[in-house]
Design a binder for these strands. Structure first.
Ligand SMILES: [Mn+2]
Ligand SMILES: [Mn+2]
Ligand SMILES: [Zn+2]
Ligand SMILES: [Zn+2]
Lengths: 139, 139
DNA sequence: TGCCTTCCTGCAAGTTTTCGCATTAAGGAT
DNA sequence: ATCCTTAATGCGAAAACTTGCAGGAAGGCA
């Protein structure tokens, strides 16, 4: 598993949720599935870890993880994709044509967010923005 | 209907799609359902206009409209919402707490997009961005 | 450790969304 | 106006996702 499991499980517990073997397996599966993984990829990894784990539990676990911020959910062409949350929020540029993704420099987005915050009196609270466009090689 | 129907139907046709009575009804329903309408709201309006219109046709029509840019799709708390596309792209700030939405000043977002374009050699192609945060009165 | 409360899980049923296929109709051409 | 080609629709079935409920396990407390 690529995450510091202890830390994530403690956070789960601190948020008032029980740390079950099923939730641990789903969290491991999210990590194993790599970034921006669609649900079927996660289900596949889960059933490898524990074939008896019910699909409805996977959906419910993901909802809990997103709720608590352990996992971030984003949209990729109208489909939900999941990835383990890093300590830092991060944002992407995504090519409509080839699907490739670039992680944005944090300074760029935070200055934009600060501008929005001051202009609109909004506290921006975005941990995974995906902006669509067309990359250099696809233009 | 709130859209200039003629124009939209011509665009559909120009994109190589057939202009059917069902698609006209779905487009009218999207307008009638107002902005950021979830699918069930659209289905409700559709069945008022034509009770015999099958739900699968509604899903397929929406996919065509999003594909051709006549309708924009956005995510509202993990749910797909639809709205008729204006001639100009527009973006929002959305409060996580009360759900209220603000339409962003176009200059603000376009300067951000231009900066991204020059830094990353990406042609930004975003017609409906929704940025989450917490509004002044909810902070 | 063992008990107790409450949350979580699996299962089955319900709901939503997608898909394949036969029939229908749009729209270009004559 | 009629014909022809092919895309679009409705329908039924499948797949994806959600929900209610009864049994089982987490974790707090003694
Ligand atoms: Mn990411
Ligand atoms: Mn909008
Ligand atoms: Zn590309
Ligand atoms: Zn608010």
């Amino acid at each position: 598993m690529s995450h510091n499991q202890l830390n994530y499980l403690e956070e789960l517990h601190a948020a008032g949720y029980r740390v079950t073997s099923q939730r641990q397996a789903v969290l491991d599966a999210v990590c194993a599935a790599g970034s921006h993984a669609p649900i079927e990829k996660i289900l596949l990894h889960v059933s490898k870890l524990d074939p008896s784990l019910n699909a409805s539990t996977v959906y419910r676990s993901l909802a809990v993880f997103v709720e608590t911020g352990l996992v971030v959910m984003a949209m990729d062409q109208g489909r939900k994709v999941y990835e383990i949350a890093n300590t830092q929020p991060h944002h992407h540029l995504r090519c409509r044509v080839c699907g490739s993704m670039v992680t944005l420099n944090a300074a760029t987005t935070s200055s934009f967010f600060e501008q929005l915050a001051s202009s609109y009196a909004y506290k921006i609270d975005m941990d995974h923005l995906v902006i669509d466009g067309i990359c250099k090689s696809c233009q």
